[in-house]
């Protein structure tokens, strides 16, 4: 078989015992996410668990439940709200709790990862966005990476929006993402993720858009011929804690969870950068034709998308986000 990178091997579900040194942890918690192996949500979850155990000398054990084992994104957030799950890592689904998190669907918001890092330290994230969460029983801890989104398809290499003409592209359930690809000239429609592999294989859809690690993590490269580097959206994911559980923690424990969240955020951006660098070769080795898209030609079409966003989210807030991301 093939040599797919498996960054999770060092952190399989049972590997924590080695760090623990045989003693019983004084605190064991559940961390739920929808990501599977290869996906940044999944890898960040295991990295966070590993670092927490190291930093607490094995006194805190984080059991990761990846791949939606404990439920879909909304369900695990609702479970965290009631304290049944201690921590979750979710991405776009958070917009259903607080629509303001939809701002990251602004195309080409972050020029590169140093801007992302800078944003994660900005007032907009630290105060404005985080303060929306307690209303939903959640505490915002980490601003992690899901990744820069790219377009893969089976028709032709995508250089400019003109190349997307007539292409059926699968997008997630997101009004903005649909509006964006309509502006780009494609024919976007949502499809449940479970159907995506066969839909691409049988040609129901020609194209999809997601970060490179997620494409490989879902084996979509096996059913796609072209990968075009567009970086059209940078999707973050968020490490969230249950508010009721968080309030029971000692300040020392809270400090560990917060510090490691920041370290893991940095780690996830480095890992994401590294994956983007390395996976291009992986795609080529697996027969996928990779090209760099003409990004300015896409950027020229985004103004209406930002306008649509401002109809649903406070325009001043959107402007503050754009400013903080510069």
């Amino acid at each position: 078989s093939e040599n797919r990178s498996q960054p999770t091997e060092g952190a399989s579900p049972s590997s924590g015992d080695a760090v623990n040194g045989g003693g019983e942890p004084e605190l064991t918690i559940r961390l739920a996410t929808n990501g599977g192996p290869g996906n940044m949500l999944h890898d960040s979850a295991y990295e966070y668990a590993k670092r927490i155990e190291e930093k607490s000398n094995g006194k805190i054990k984080v059991n990761v439940f990846a791949n939606s084992q404990l439920g879909t994104d909304l369900a695990v957030m609702d479970a965290a709200n009631s304290g049944s799950i201690e921590m979750v890592i979710v991405s776009t689904a958070l917009t259903q709790k607080a629509p303001e998190f939809g701002v990251f669907d602004i195309p080409f918001l972050f020029a590169d990862r140093t801007k992302v890092k800078q944003f994660s330290e900005s007032d907009v994230w630290q105060n404005e966005l985080k303060s929306l969460l307690p209303e939903h029983g959640l505490v915002g801890l980490g601003f992690f990476e899901n990744g820069y989104r790219q377009i893969s398809n089976n028709v032709r290499p995508i250089h400019t929006p003109e190349d997307l003409e007539g292409i059926n592209i699968r997008v997630p359930d997101s009004r903005i993402r649909i509006a964006m690809f309509e502006e780009f000239g494609a024919n976007p429609s949502p499809l449940d993720f479970s159907e995506l592999f066969t839909a691409l294989q049988q040609g129901v859809y020609d194209a999809q858009e997601s970060p490179m690690p997620a494409i490989v993590g879902s084996a979509l490269h096996e059913v796609q011929q072209y990968l075009s580097i567009t970086n059209h959206v940078y999707s973050p994911c968020y490490l969230l804690a249950s508010q009721v559980w968080w309030d029971t923690l000692s300040p020392e424990h809270q400090q560990i969870f917060e510090e490691v969240a920041i370290e893991t955020g940095d780690w996830s951006r480095d890992a994401g950068q590294q994956a983007d660098d390395e996976l291009v070769d992986f795609f080529k080795e697996n027969g996928v034709e990779v090209n760099d898209a003409d990004i300015p030609s896409f950027q020229a079409r985004i103004a209406p998308v930002v306008d649509i966003m401002k109809e649903n989210i406070d325009p001043d807030f959107v402007d503050r986000v754009i400013e903080a991301a510069k």
Partner: peptide, 21 residues
């Protein structure tokens, strides 16, 4: 309707999947 919109009308009916589920 999801199939009809995508294949015949060449547009998207984003609400169909979530509504059906």
């Amino acid at each position: 309707w999801g199939v009809f919109a995508r294949y015949i009308l060449q547009t998207s009916a984003p609400w169909t999947g979530e509504l059906a589920a």
